[in-house]
């Protein structure tokens, strides 16, 4: 019995296998429509989410399975003080697999240590969000056809962005990757990600505050939101926020086959006028999340 708590738990060959399954699901959806008949996923969402929860539920329905769960802590026994460990033990009696989102870091790991069914981390605070990374990887695969020899720009809040850290961790295992880390000084990538992941793997990288200047060399641009609450004062936020808003002008010098990604929700960091640009991949990225979650559910349930 296996769970997925951190993207690092998947080997490169397992990632390849998940991607191949997802690509096959896209090509032959009917082949998979009854694979999970009689199986139930419990979506335990202790904090709100739109895409992730609905995407897990859609994934299970499209595999022919069923869904139970809750979408906020208030409608669960957690509001009465039940521990994560007890919740996991009880849900194991009702369902075949758990997808859990929790505001506390490490909660899905605790669930997996106590459940007798597989647990998927659907986001634990600012810590991990492995299925978002799976969605990101499938998007890159479908757009670029490869994971090696890519220049990947990561822009915005690189300090607190869990999706950024997971993606760096996943891509650092491939050859010829270069990261361009674009952020204000206040939101630079944490030192441990640089030392423990990027430098440890001998990956080339540059840090810059200039999005427009970095644009011409990028194969992929991964945007994240610069949140007002991350700044100490409003003055700094107002000074910086426009530098990290992607609009058609900033894309003038970009490659013709640039792939623009965003984990969503987007607020204003990508202008809606970019949505019709063929290089905008972020809505497709959300759809890819569903396919990868389908592939992951099959893998963890041991269904061929």
């Amino acid at each position: 019995m296996r769970s997925l708590i951190d993207i690092k738990e998947l080997s490169v060959s397992e990632l390849d296998s998940l991607i191949n399954t997802a690509l096959d699901i896209i090509e032959n959806p009917k082949k998979y429509s009854q694979k999970c008949q009689g199986k139930k996923i419990a979506t335990l969402f202790f904090e709100p989410s739109t895409r992730t929860r609905l995407s897990f539920e859609a994934a299970m329905y499209e595999l022919g399975g069923n869904v139970l769960g809750f979408s906020e802590a208030q409608s669960s026994s957690a509001s009465k003080g039940e521990s994560v460990a007890d919740t996991a033990k009880i849900i194991s009696l009702y369902a075949d697999i758990i997808a859990m989102r929790h505001p506390k870091e490490g909660a899905p790991l605790v669930a997996s240590m106590n459940a007798s069914i597989p647990v998927i981390n659907a986001g634990d605070g600012g810590h991990n969000h492995p299925t978002q990374t799976l969605a990101d990887l499938l998007t890159i695969k479908r757009k670029k056809g490869r994971f090696d020899n890519l220049t990947v720009g990561l822009c915005g809040d690189l300090k607190f962005g869990r999706t950024v850290h997971s993606l760096i961790s996943a891509l650092s295992r491939y050859e010829g990757i270069k990261f361009v880390l674009i952020s204000p000084e206040e939101l630079k990538i944490p030192g441990y990600v640089k030392t423990d992941v990027i430098e440890k793997n001998g990956i080339e990288y540059v840090e810059t505050t200039d999005l427009a200047g970095a644009m011409p060399e990028l194969d992929i641009l991964y945007m994240t939101r610069v949140q007002k609450e991350r700044f100490f004062n409003e003055e700094d936020y107002l000074r910086l926020k426009d530098s990290y808003i992607l609009n058609p002008q900033k894309l003038e010098n970009a490659k013709k086959d640039l792939c623009i990604m965003h984990p969503l929700p987007r607020v204003n960091e990508i202008s809606v006028s970019v949505d019709n640009d063929p290089r905008a991949c972020y809505f497709e990225q959300a759809l890819n999340g569903k396919y990868m979650r389908m592939a992951l559910i099959l893998m963890l349930l041991g269904i061929e």
Binding site: S83, A85, K104, E105, A107, L109, G126, H127, D196
Partner: peptide, 21 residues
């Protein structure tokens, strides 16, 4: 010491640290 860690709010959990480097 991380206030956002599950071990900070569920007191009965063992405090476990692993050697990473």
């Amino acid at each position: 010491k991380n206030p956002r860690c599950i071990s900070s709010c569920e007191q009965e959990l063992d405090q476990i640290f692993t050697l990473t480097d």
